[in-house]
Nucleic acid binder design. Structure first.
Length: 1127
RNA sequence: GCCCGGAUGGCGGAACUGGUAUACGCGCACGACUUAAAAUCGUGUCUCGCAAGGGAUGUGGGUUCGAUUCCCACUCCGGGCACCA
């Protein structure tokens, strides 16, 4: 027997696998498919981190097991190579990022190969390869076409000394991470992606996937769905309204002022009416200059300024209330304005206290007893009652009078009902006298704390819904009357010292009242409760009241999200160029618009659009069409043709039936026209309102779509997603046969009938000047630059290359200017898993056939740090591609798990500066890849962070050596240790599925320890063992497999199924407990009856001794496990 | 401040769904082999106690015949978020 020489063995098998291509996935196969995915690495200059190996090995183990289980497995690899570190390195050294990337990926590739991962290297991808990013750019263009990519002003972090824009992660405590200098926020036009349009689905569809629960939670928190209402507050003596978003419409009667975000657009609009404008302006300036840190930490104390001279009307109370601006209200969330309800919101409460604003209570707390003997009994009637809670102080000591009830589980203060017309304080004094006998009251005070309780009263046998007023009483002396026997039977009275009261009181309401009384709890009550001071809504609970009140004040139920649109621009070099060209002349080109209304005159739609377009210098023809109430399409088409001329400068936009007229016009026009825009249009009459047969009969409903296409340069279909009259499939068919772009939107008013601007309509027809590069000209390749430093103006270094920047406009062929921003790192990684299924495709990002076969990803493992952003972004892109029918599923990943980090020795993060970085190459050299793999899987639970240990790695190495040495003990004819091996197979199989690799390995070790004690081992058992070890340590296993005389790779062997019948023991050991303490063990026959076992145990010597003469009260038997005797 | 994890021997950790706490590995100690050392193999290794027995899973309480596991309160460590109406 040779010695275990890991270097030789590992190299030998890595070569062999590469030669035979055993790990290459076959597109299409009769076998079931399995797609396992790891996050593709960023090839940094530091080389591979041992953490990469941990997660790669885990998926490798699963993939290898799946292959042996008969799956066609895809386990691909590639490089996420765009990004800052490489660019910063290029800035420092002047070496081209392409070269840096090439060197780094070469290192990574060599390192990954040295560990023996079963990647399909034939599908390797690289996000910086133009053949790859061509498709990243292509997806961006699709987003642009659908209106999901747009340019907007947004803030970037700007380093004053480096003079470059910084990513959020480069700003640490408001300082530049590179130079330590100051940073500020600068406004810049940036590309944005409208991920918020997918917020709802990104949230809801989490129900359909198998992600770890923390991951789902992380996603949900990030999306931040919150349901509430939008409510208008009218400004007095002005036509403006303040739109407010609130999740608590039930508290509106308590809204005593309104706050706008300092940068809310209304603030500027109201300037002329604001009497203290200079003060307001000063405040707005101050807020702008504050950094995030100042805003969020130092400034927990709230600041703000009243807008003097204007008031708004509270729509519920009709009161005039003041308007403030304050920076704790964010312009970016909800509507950028709130109604402040200081009595029921902590922040508003704090603000109101500071500025002396009025606080009005409109919700009183309620406690529902749900368990215990006083639980509410729905079958019994409920009585409403007013009552008191009396906190009574001792005449001398700091003690308080409490009652311990005898028939109910209550430790509580004195309570009692208020009788007719009785004053609250009088009622408290009377109750104290009745229940305790004390009557010398020195001081009495209503502390103005009211709360409800709904519970069952065991003495009175009814449900009560009681409103408790809290009263404080102080006794003057111990003077006490005799109390009735009836009271004595109900409860005992106790004096409890102040410190013990909170612990003693066991009714939540009582505890709450006490804490309020002690000043331990804020008087601001933020939960749901019962309404007061709310007019006709009094006595309703929050849930009921919310709906009613929204209806009453004409508000709108609305869901908002914390999620913000995705800032997609980077002023950097090393990223995908954004494939658009800016064309000034296209932006400024003036058109002749023809706007066509639908059935009846559409006053709501046309006027604002006409105004808007004319303001921009376009000519607009928007006639009232003949017979709008009995419309005839043919007649209307002729009317237009008679009254105006169609030229190549004409844009026709039709709404509803107007869209039909528009199509017919396009068919009839002599000159080609610029654009045809169809808003909620249709091509079949049965989808018009059935009450309008005249519309149906107005013409033959035949269209010459070929002609329409040839006569229009561009065709756009805009549809209200929720407008039910025209079904989605018809819109899609229209888009298909007219080769039109289709946009689904959620307009402000249904069917776009808002009487003010509908932003989506404007977006569709107003030219921004940003022209998409023609798809056939993709990719827009990154040009070579001399210097990677961003420009002084904050643009990317690309802006300096005039040859690259100055190009023809893709539309008018006039002078154009390329976008010099590049895409963020997240772009290429949002869809890379789709490319793997067809990585060399030149016509599509991946063929539908391959996508259909391989996607979704069955199992995706990655780091916890990527579970919010990367996962969300790629889910968004995937849903978008799904909507375009380009991918077969709406979710990209069926299952997502995550791994813990590997920390340096001692528990600190591995870093160059600490000098605790472990180079995997060294470990592979001294111990071998198999040892490294085993160690990383064995070191701790996979999902948790673990510190590296130089010492502990020897354990797995010794284990492998023991396995190696065991080969001399293998005997063909030996009876095999079936019990041990079958048990191991079962445990290892299930542990791998649960990613419990550490216990799987310990099972393998236990097996080897057991077998090592024997003289020899049967070949059958040894081979089975090698099979279940093979995913963990593939090299040594192949070698031993070959030594045993096998020709074919062990990879091609089937995964062993545990023979459960061999695991079952005839006789087993069970534990005998007396009073829960282990006393002895006995052997029983498996599945012996409880009776038999009891008999055996009772006569057991040890047990008899323990029992002494005590009587056996009870015996608990857990089948085949334990028996507990209670005496 | 909020959210999510975690806390078990000298160390990494194990324990199914509430049923023998400390599997497996490292380290350490002793022994065998050796002239010797390393390697290897064997034995031992939570703690108090001679033993019988008792005590230990961050702390305090609760539920239970029985709690590392469930509930309540708290402490410490790690990660994420930042006034989200």
């Amino acid at each position: 027997m040779k010695e275990y020489d890991h270097k030789k063995i590992e190299k030998k098998w890595q070569k062999e696998w590469e030669k035979t291509g055993v790990y290459e996935a076959k597109n299409f196969s009769k076998k079931p498919k399995f797609y396992g995915l790891i996050e593709f690495p960023y090839p940094s200059g530091a080389g591979m981190h041992v953490g990469h190996i941990r997660s790669n090995t885990a998926m490798d183990i699963i993939s290898r097991k799946r292959r042996m289980e008969g799956y066609n497995v895809l386990y691909p690899i590639g490089w996420d190579a765009f990004g800052l570190p490489t660019e910063n390195y290029a800035i420092k050294t002047g070496i081209h990022p392409i070269k840096v990337t090439k060197d780094n990926t070469d290192t990574f590739r060599r390192q990954l190969k040295s560990i023996g991962f079963s990647f399909d290297w034939s599908r390797e991808i690289n996000t910086t390869d133009p053949k790859y990013y061509k498709w990243t750019q292509w997806i961006f263009l699709q987003l642009l076409k659908k209106g999901l990519a747009y340019k907007a002003k947004s803030y970037i972090n700007w380093c004053l000394s480096c003079k470059i824009g910084l990513a959020n992660e480069e700003v640490v405590n408001d300082k530049c991470e590179r130079c330590g200098g100051d940073t500020e926020k600068r406004e810049k036009e940036q590309w944005m992606l409208a991920i918020t349009k997918y917020a709802d689905r990104l949230d809801k569809d989490l129900d359909t996937v198998d992600y770890l629960s923390q991951i789902k939670l992380g996603q949900r928190n990030w999306i931040g769905r919150s349901e509430g209402a939008e409510i208008d507050f009218e400004i007095k003596n002005n036509n403006e309204k303040i739109k407010v978003f609130t999740t608590r419409p039930d508290t509106i009667f308590g809204a005593t002022y309104v706050i706008l975000a300092p940068d809310h657009e209304l603030v500027q609009k109201l300037k002329s009416q604001i009497k203290n404008w200079s003060e307001v302006e000063k405040y707005i300036k101050e807020v702008k200059s504050k950094t995030d840190i100042e805003r969020t930490t130092e400034d927990k104390i709230k600041t703000g300024v009243e807008l003097k001279g204007i008031k708004v009307i509270n729509p519920a109370t009709q009161e005039e209330i003041p308007i403030w601006i304050a920076d704790y209200v964010l312009a970016s969330y909800g509507t950028g304005a709130i109604m402040a309800v200081p009595a029921h919101d902590e922040r508003d409460f704090e603000f109101a206290k500071k500025f002396n604003l009025s606080i009005r209570k409109v919700i009183e707390p309620i406690e529902y007893a749900q368990t215990g003997v006083d639980a509410f009994r729905p079958e019994l009637p409920t009585k409403d009652k007013e009552a008191i809670f009396a906190i009574v102080k001792h005449w001398k000591e700091d003690k308080y009078l409490c009652l311990k009830w005898k028939n109910a589980p209550w430790n509580i203060f004195i309570t009692g009902g208020i009788e007719n017309n009785e004053k609250i304080i009088d009622s408290a004094i009377r109750e104290v006298e009745e229940e305790s006998g004390y009557f010398d009251i020195k001081k009495a005070e209503d502390i103005d704390h009211v709360m409800y309780a709904q519970f069952y009263h065991p003495n009175r046998k009814i449900n009560l819904k009681t409103r408790f007023h809290t009263v404080y009483l102080e006794l003057g002396s111990d003077a006490r009357k005799e109390i009735s026997q009836e009271e004595k039977d109900k409860h005992e009275t106790l004096w409890i010292p102040r410190e013990e009261v909170e612990e003693f009181i066991n009714v939540p309401n009582g505890k709450h009242a006490w804490r309020i009384f002690q000043g331990l709890e804020s008087r601001c009550f933020t939960q749901d409760g019962i309404l007061v001071n709310s007019g006709k809504f009094n006595k309703l609970d929050s849930k009921e009241a919310t709906k009613e009140i929204v209806k009453f004040i004409g508000g709108k139920e609305k869901t908002t999200f914390k999620l913000r649109d995705w800032v997609f621009s980077r002023q950097r070099y090393w990223g995908e160029p954004i494939p658009v060209v800016y064309c000034e002349s296209c932006k400024n080109r003036k058109y002749n618009y023809i706007l066509l209304h639908g059935y009846k005159r559409q006053d709501l739609f046309i006027p604002w659009l006409k105004m808007e377009l004319e303001k921009q210098g376009h000519k607009v023809y928007a006639p009232l069409l003949p017979n709008p109430l009995k419309p005839n399409v043919v007649e209307q088409v002729e009317f237009i043709l008679k009254n105006t001329v169609l030229t190549e400068n004409t844009i026709i936009m039709g709404v509803s039936l107007g869209a039909v007229v528009a199509m017919k016009l396009a068919e009839k026009t002599k000159s080609v026209i610029a654009k045809l825009v169809l808003v909620d249009g249709f091509i079949k009459p049965e989808f018009t309102d059935q009450a309008r047969p005249d519309v149906e009969r107005s013409f033959d409903w035949k269209f010459n779509f070929k002609k329409i296409i040839s006569k229009t340069k561009e065709r756009i279909i805009l549809a209200d997603k929720d407008f039910s009259v025209v079904p989605e499939w018809q819109l899609q068919k229209m888009a298909e046969i007219m080769n039109a772009d289709i946009l689904y939107e959620k307009p402000i008013a249904p069917h776009f009938q808002n009487n003010g601007p509908e932003p989506e309509i404007l977006n569709t027809i107003i030219e921004t000047g940003w022209m998409p590069v023609s798809e056939k000209d993709l990719p827009v390749e990154l040009p070579k630059v001399k210097n990677y430093q961003p420009t002084n103006s904050g643009e990317s270094p690309l802006a300096n290359i005039s040859k690259w920047v100055n190009v023809k406009c893709p539309k008018c062929k006039g002078k154009g200017r390329r976008e010099t921003d590049t895409m963020p790192n997240w772009a290429g990684s949002s869809w890379y898993f789709l490319r793997y299924v067809d990585s060399k495709n030149k016509k599509e990002f991946a063929s539908k056939k391959n996508l259909k076969y391989w996607t979704p990803v069955d199992w995706y493992n990655g780091g916890m740090e990527h579970t919010t952003l990367h996962l969300l972004y790629s889910r968004f892109w995937h849903k978008f591609l799904f909507d375009l029918k380009l991918v077969p599923t709406s979710e990209p990943y069926q299952k997502r798990t995550s791994h813990g980090m590997i920390l340096g020795e001692g528990g600190a993060k591995m870093s160059k500066s600490l000098g605790n970085v472990i180079n995997p190459d060294d470990i592979v050299k001294t111990y071998g890849a198999d040892t490294l793999r085993l160690y990383e899987m064995f070191m701790g639970p996979f999902s948790q962070s673990v510190a590296w240990s130089e010492e502990a790695i020897i354990g797995p190495r010794r284990f492998l050596e023991r396995i190696w040495n065991l080969q001399s003990k293998v005997q063909k004819n030996k009876k095999y240790v079936e019990f041990e091996i079958e048990k191991a197979i079962k445990k290892v199989s299930s542990d791998i599925e649960e990613m419990k690799f550490n216990t799987a390995i310990s099972t393998l070790m236990i097996f080897i320890n057991e077998v090592g004690k024997l003289e020899s081992i049967s070949q059958i058992a040894y081979e089975k063992f090698l099979k279940i070890l093979s995913p963990f340590a593939p090299h040594i296993v192949e070698e031993l497999w070959q030594i045993l005389g096998h020709q074919k790779s062990i990879n091609l062997e089937p995964w062993p199924m545990p023979d459960l019948s061999k695991i079952k023991d005839e006789e087993i050991k069970i534990v005998v407990q007396v009073n829960g303490k282990v006393r002895t063990e006995i052997m029983i026959k498996i599945d012996d009856s409880e009776e038999d076992i009891k008999k055996q145990v009772i006569s057991n010597e040890v047990v008899l001794k323990q029992l002494a003469d005590r009587e056996v009260k009870k015996v608990f038997y857990v089948k085949n496990r334990l028996i507990n005797i209670v005496v």
